[in-house]
């Protein structure tokens, strides 16, 4: 019998998968990205409905509890995503510089002609 927490979480996962499918249809998400996110949410679903399954995988990696495994993976993923985000911000910063440079030079040339 599923607990209230599990039912709510499964509903959330179904909602998330529905969102992924919609994004794929509208073209916002590529086929690889869509597959990754569907598999990710299915994985989360399995871990929520059958918590002991994470314990089994954890044992393979010599980690005591399934919850710990999930925690470790979550932290590693979060760090990675943060790093990616940081790089993206740097790239955007450089694009901004290119734009500012072009505008500044164009303005300077214009004022020289006047």
């Amino acid at each position: 019998m599923l607990s209230i927490f599990q039912i709510l979480f499964v509903c959330f996962i179904l909602f998330a998968i529905f969102g992924v499918v919609q994004k794929r249809r509208s073209g916002d998400l590529g086929p690889k990205g869509a597959l990754f996110w569907v598999l990710f949410w299915i994985g989360v679903g399995v871990a929520v409905v059958w918590p002991e399954s994470t314990a089994k995988i954890a044992h393979i990696f010599s980690i005591g509890r399934g919850v710990d495994l999930v925690l470790y993976i979550s932290i590693a993923t979060l760090f990675y995503l943060l790093f990616r985000l940081h790089i993206k911000i740097e790239q955007v910063g450089r694009d901004v510089t290119t734009l500012i440079r072009k505008m500044a030079i164009d303005d300077a040339k214009k004022s020289l002609k006047e």
Binding site: I100, R101, A108
Partner: peptide, 25 residues
Amino acid sequence: AFVISHGVNRGQGASLQTGHVCALD
């Protein structure tokens, strides 16, 4: 001086490169 003004503060490296582009021009 010939003055080029950045609309947003971008740092010293960015300013030098702006100067490079203009100097080449």
